[in-house]
Design a protein around this nucleic acid. Structure first.
Length: 868
RNA sequence: GCCUCGGUGGCGGAAUUGGUAGACGCGGCGGAUUCAAAAUCCGCUUCUGGUGACAGAGUGGGAGUUCGAUUCUCCCCCGGGGCACCA
């Protein structure tokens, strides 16, 4: 072992040895305990950012720790390779998305390898490869035939200038991000997954996931949003529009039905369109509602507006005429796209009724009384006894629910129903760089799925999109085809799939990544699945994780996997945040500048005053702290840090900075300290090894000093084992090793036994650090005299007897305030402890003139004397 | 707007889940070593008052429960994430 710690050399050597011995390649070995450790695969955006380093180091620490527990650990890596950034890069640089993506993958693969991750690279794949997405298309055709996938209209953001559909991210303040044009809502046909058919199961099986954070399960439950309520029909007979019918609404408060004073429908509701046929003003209002983006955040924060129609519906119980309004706050996507409005007991309806002068009729006795004068009070929404409701007066919520449900059922005007907030998953995208939807539109046969023997539908790879419309729709050589059932000329679907589809099943593909007879090899898939530990950003808590759970169930129902859930344990990593900086051009478009290119001015207290771009010295706007992302250009490239300090230092620094589930504002202050710590470990080990390795440790003949050192070693084992193995708190595990090092550096090294105790300490430091800083651990382990590599060494065992102490220090409090410390024998009785506390000098001083009322003794911890 | 998580020294964070607030590290200050510097080592470092022993205050703000609250309860403020086409 060299005297100087030189990360570059030892990291290179360790990585070469792992590669030479294929150290992380795994196979299905039936007699071994398996552990599938999976980190969310990256989008190949160009370079790694700190969030990636954090994510993959966490995964690697867990994988290596599990290997030291003796398990057969699978840790794969791949690329979520389809997506919008490739199209944007293509437009900016005139490179085809495929070429851009593949070169990013090559660069980022090298970056990942330089981090020394224990990955089985033989299983690597990219989702943009036809032998991957072929099976996605295969599953699509199966599901389409089963009716799990269907076609209907959906609403998208339309940029009238660029003549293209925009993603929500591309709509900023209601305008297209490139054109600056006001965005409109537009209805187009799309394919949908019937995820709502699985809503009940997706909800209930959350209870079978004790290894998931409560926070994520809560968010998913709320997202699925099961509510029990009533479907209520309001009949209408409208000579003016020549149609009869029933307006269906869903309500969770049928007990307030007698207080309904109007109904409101979404602007997209068919009844709104009917009413507008003879009403130009209403027509104009509906047009106005089309302005702006489709995202819920936009819709929910816009001003609540409504417009009366000339239509009326009948109250299902009283027959009273209720006016029909069109309101922009009613969402077409939830329930029936129509609501019954009870202004007296719903805050939003109350505001709307007040604004438009609609009647407010209280029908519930609440804690605020029998009436509902303005302003709104939260108590108005309470459940209570019914009033002003004829035959239902005096009933409480539950009996009113039942009674009103029965009457509605008799009249065939409604019945109890469960409603989910969850909507079916629309997956059609009018984009190029995605998996083609395997459907052929035939004038006589309709939508025909592409037969298995014609899969995959290969995406042409040399296209450079221009940002106007869908490129595939302009390529006859792609879309012209013949119908598989009737052989007549037909047109291939030119939409591609949402990229969430690829990331919904990749975890299963890793079990048999090169299998060419099916989506997965069921034997391999069932060997590895479910994933034992899944690690990824909290930002995926809902969408990705819900879709992956849904897909796993779809695959189960196709007989491809046996398990019900894909991820047994989930660790949601907090995001790495960084400041954002931008400038706005004359069109209103924003250009984002990387924090590395910006100079920040602060006052004497460190408060940020202004920021300017280094290259031109001119000011930039400060956009706040956000997650590192391509779109805000605030990702910090870890490469410079890896080059300067090495992978171990980066890994150590990143793991020491904070616990994995906490969000982290990026700052590199402290990297030096991580490096300094590794140098100290190296130096002590080097000195120890140079002195010659000691003989065996004899724990029966240790002196007090040696016992203290050995106690420190086993305290570190206890702390690190809990922190890494159970709580995934790597920062405190590292702190424990640092504390141990502080002891070892001062430990005596004179006798053979001194040095045997130190040997145990240094071996412990090496083993505890092995998952976190694997390269230095690899070298130290050899130096400490071991032939087998540290990756296969067992995790150190705690010797409880090393922790035993003869005496303890207790805290003495008077009235809860710290007043002193006493040293007592470990086996002292409660009486002895109390007596020692009472006679403490400081206690006497602070209780002087007071009467002692109570003495609380917490064994091994403290004594609190209550006096007044 | 809705759902969810968080807020502790100058900074990152710790606190065995109701029992010594600030572990461990960064930064800062002082010292040793050195011709000098780097590196390394030692000491101090929450705030206020005091030369000091020490005392008081203190975990976003306000109230409460308790012998004792960073931890539990209620109200409020601020920040992060998600909101179905960023991934």
């Amino acid at each position: 072992m060299q005297e100087q710690y030189s990360p570059r050399e030892i990291e290179h050597a360790a990585q070469q040895e792992w590669e030479r011995t294929d150290a992380f390649r795994v196979e299905e070995t039936p007699d071994r305990d398996t552990y599938y450790c999976l980190s969310m695969f990256p989008y190949p955006s160009g370079k790694l950012h700190m969030g990636h380093v954090r994510n993959y180091t966490i995964g690697d620490v867990i994988a290596r720790y599990q290997r030291m527990q003796g398990r057969n650990v699978l840790q794969p890596m791949g690329w979520d390779a389809f997506g919008m950034p490739a199209e944007n890069a293509a437009m900016n640089n005139q490179v085809a998305p495929a070429a851009w993506t593949w070169s990013n993958i090559d660069y980022m693969r090298n970056q990942l390898k330089s981090l020394g991750l224990a990955i089985d690279w033989s299983r690597e794949f990219a989702t943009c490869a036809p032998d991957y997405y072929r099976w996605e298309q295969w599953l699509f055709t199966r599901l389409f035939k089963k009716g799990v996938i269907y076609r209907k209209n959906g609403t998208v953001n339309w940029d009238p200038v660029d003549q293209t559909v925009l993603a929500n991210e591309q709509v900023i303040d209601g305008r297209g991000w490139r054109s600056g044009a006001l965005v409109e809502k537009r209805e187009i046909p799309m394919y949908y997954f019937r995820i709502t058919d699985y809503a009940e199961e997706l909800l209930s099986s959350l209870d079978d996931l004790p290894g998931w954070p409560e926070q994520v399960k809560t968010m998913q439950r709320n997202w699925i949003g099961k509510s029990v309520g009533m479907e209520v029909h309001f009949p209408y007979d409208q000579a003016s529009i020549g149609r009869d019918g029933k307006l269906k609404v869903f309500t969770t408060r049928p007990d307030t039905l007698m207080g309904a004073t109007y109904v409101a429908v979404a602007p997209e509701h068919p009844l709104a369109a009917q009413a507008a046929e003879s009403d130009p003003q209403l027509q104009a209002f509906i047009e106005e509602c089309k302005r702006g983006g489709v995202s819920e955040a936009d819709i929910a924060t816009q001003e609540k507006k409504g417009h009366a129609t000339r239509l009326f519906v009948e109250h299902p119980l009283t027959g009273e005429k209720l006016p029909v309004w069109v309101a922009n706050y009613v969402l077409m996507g939830y329930g029936e796209g129509a609501v019954m409005a009870v202004p007296a007991h719903d805050e939003r309806d109350f505001a709307f009724a007040s604004q438009y002068g609609l009647p407010i009729k209280p029908v519930i006795r609440t804690s605020a009384g029998d009436s509902t004068p303005a302003p709104w009070q939260d108590a108005y929404a309470e459940k209570g006894v019914l009033i002003n409701s004829d035959e239902f007066d005096g009933l409480d919520f539950d009996s009113a629910f039942t009674a009103i449900g029965e009457v509605l059922k008799q009249k065939e005007l409604g019945e109890p129903r469960t409603q989910f907030r969850l909507r079916d998953w629309g997956i059609s995208r009018q984009r190029y760089w995605g998996c083609p939807i395997p459907i052929i539109h035939c004038p006589s046969c309709g939508d025909v799925p592409v037969p298995d023997d014609q899969l995959p539908v290969v995406l042409p790879e040399d296209v450079v999109p221009d940002g106007a419309g869908s490129p595939l729709a302009k390529m006859p050589e792609f879309y012209e085809c013949t119908c598989p059932s009737c052989n007549q000329p037909a047109r291939r679907e030119t939409d591609t799939m949402d990229t969430f589809v690829e990331s919904s099943w990749y975890f299963a593909r890793y079990a048999s990544p090169h299998y060419d007879k099916g989506m997965v090899d069921p034997t391999a898939a069932n060997h590895w699945l479910p994933v034992d530990q899944y690690i990824g950003g909290i930002e995926h808590a809902i969408l990705h994780l819900l879709y992956a759970r849904f897909f796993h169930k779809l695959m189960r129902d196709e007989g491809l996997v046996d398990s019900d859930e894909p991820f047994k344990n989930l660790l949601t990593q907090g995001m790495v945040l960084a400041d954002t900086y931008y400038r706005i051009d004359e069109k209103g478009a924003r250009t984002w500048y990387n924090p590395a290119d910006v100079e920040v001015e602060t006052d004497s207290k460190g408060k940020v005053l202004s920021a300017r771009l280094r290259s031109d010295g001119l000011p930039v706007e400060i956009g706040g702290t956000e997650k590192m992302s391509k779109s805000k250009n605030n990702g910090v490239d870890p490469q410079a840090m890896i080059d300067q300090y090495g992978a171990d230092t980066c890994r150590l620094f990143m793991m020491f900075a904070s616990p994995p589930d906490m969000s982290l504002e990026w700052s590199d202050s402290g990297v030096e300290g991580a490096q300094r710590f590794l140098r100290r470990v190296w130096r002590l080990a080097h000195q120890h090894i140079t002195d010659g390795l000691p003989g065996a440790l004899d724990i029966t003949s240790l002196n007090d000093a040696q016992k203290q050192v050995r106690r420190a070693t086993h305290l570190a084992i206890r702390q690190a084992s809990q922190d890494i193995g159970q709580h995934h708190k790597f920062n405190t595990a590292i702190a424990a090793v640092m504390t141990l090092m502080n002891v070892l550096e001062k430990a005596p090294r004179d006798s053979e036994q001194d040095r045997a105790v130190l040997q145990e300490g240094l071996e412990t430091v090496t083993l505890l650090l092995a998952p976190i800083t694997p390269h230095i651990a690899h070298t130290l382990w050899q130096g400490l005299g071991h032939d087998t590599p540290v990756i296969d060494a067992p995790w150190p065992q705690l010797d409880e007897s090393a922790l035993v102490q003869d005496s303890l220090e207790l805290v003495i409090q008077v009235n809860g305030k710290l007043r002193g410390h006493i040293q007592v024998p470990a086996d002292a009785s409660r009486e002895d402890v109390e007596a020692a506390a009472r006679s403490n000098e400081n206690v006497l001083r602070f209780t002087d003139g007071l009467t002692i009322r109570k003495v609380i003794v917490v064994p091994g911890k403290l004594v609190n004397i209550v006096a007044n």
